[in-house]
Amino acid sequence: MKNATPPPIPKPGGAPVKNAVSVRALDVTLDGTHVLRGVDLAASTGEWVNIIGPNGAGKTTLLRALLGLVSFDGEITIDGLSDRRRSSRARKVAYVPQTPVIPPGMLVADYVLLGRTPHRGVFAAETANDRKIAAEVLTRLDLGGFGERTVQSLSGGERQRAVMGRALAQQADLLLLDEPTTALDLGHQQDVLELVDALRRERGLTVIATLHDLTLAARYGDRIAILAQGRVAETGPPADVLTVQNIAEYFGASVRIVDDPDGPVIVPTAGAGRDPVAQNGDQP
C-alpha cells in the first residue's frame, strides 16, 4: 500500500510554490451524504494526474470542489492562492465537463469565446485580443473553418474539441477533465487524450482528469490516484497503483495486468469470483 500523503506543502512566505494545485483535508457533504472525507491530493506544475475509482467514489465531486462549485471544508490551493471568488478562480481553472450542455443554436465562435468570460467580465464585450485568442484556439484544434457553424451541428469528436477550445480560451494553467472520453469511440478517445498531452507540453498545463478506462489512465498521465469511498486510497505511478489487488479491492473487479512498454494493460478476466490474488502475475 502506498502512502496517500501528498508532497509537502510549502510554508507560507517560504520558497516558491511547487504545487500547481494542492488539496488538504477536503471534506464535502452533499444532501447529507459525506461524499469526500479528508481528501489529500497535489499536482505539480505540468503534471497529469488521473483520478480513478468506482462509481460514486466522489471523482466528479472532487473536480467540482476544485472549481468552487460545491462548498467544502479543508483547503484547496491553486497556483499558491486559496481565493474562493469565482471569476478569479475561473482564470486559473478550466473545466471540460463529462456531458457539456450544448446551447441550441449557439455558434462555435461564440461558444469558444465563452471561455473568455472570466477575463472580460460579465458585462463587457470581447476585446480584439479575446477574439484573437479564440481564433487561435480554433485553429490549433483544427476547427478553423467551424466558427460560423452551430455547436450542435458538429460530430461527437468535433464537439469535444469545441468544448476543449472553450477551456483553452480560458488560458487557465489547470485543466480539469471529467471523463473526457466517455462519449467517444476508441479513435477519438485517443485523439482527445493525445491532444491534451500535446497541449499540456506546449502550454505547461497541469491536468487532472477522471477516467473510467484504466488502461488509458495508465497510458496518459504521470500519476494515478484511486478514489474510493470519498478518500484517496492510493496514489503513485500507474504501474505501482494499478495492481491486481488494488483493482480487486477498490473496483471489485477481477483482472489480469499485462505489462506493456507503454504501461500496464488491464484485462478483465472472465469468470468473476475467483480469488484475485491468485491470478497475479501473467508477466511476459
Partner: peptide, 16 residues
Amino acid sequence: DVLAVGDEEAAALGLE
C-alpha cells in the same frame, strides 16, 4: 449567453 451552458458550467466560467 453564458448562462446558456447551464448553471454548473456558467459558474465554472466565473458567472454567478
